[in-house]
Design a protein around this nucleic acid. Sequence first.
DNA 1: CGTATGACTAGCT
DNA 2: CAGCTAGCCATAC
Length: 103
Amino acid sequence: MQPTEFSDQIYLLASRIPKGKVATYGQLAALAGSSRAARAVGRCMRENRNREAVPCHRVVAADGALTGYAFDNGVVTKKALLLAEGVVFAGDKVDLSVSLWNP
DNA sequence: CGTATGACTAGCT
DNA sequence: CAGCTAGCCATAC
């Protein structure tokens, strides 16, 4: 398979998200060059099979809510991973005012 | 090349 | 506040 420039950017950006921080789909899309490609970002995350190279669990919805996750127990595992990394939660959502990645 | 789909988002009801 | 609709983007078929 031959990754396109867009998906390549997404994987690169995702791998740059520091531990303890999260980024939104729209944010990654914007950094990749298309501020409205949030859906395409999510699609790439689902396609991704290497969670060690691409920490897709650090990517959340625009309001901090956890959406999908392709590994283990889905969003349950996703939340557990984020908590383990020090991400601050406000209920079932990430507290973006504290844990949002700021490139 | 046209259609369908999805881990999104913003706006309305 | 919760639920729905329409719009955008990249891929798969």
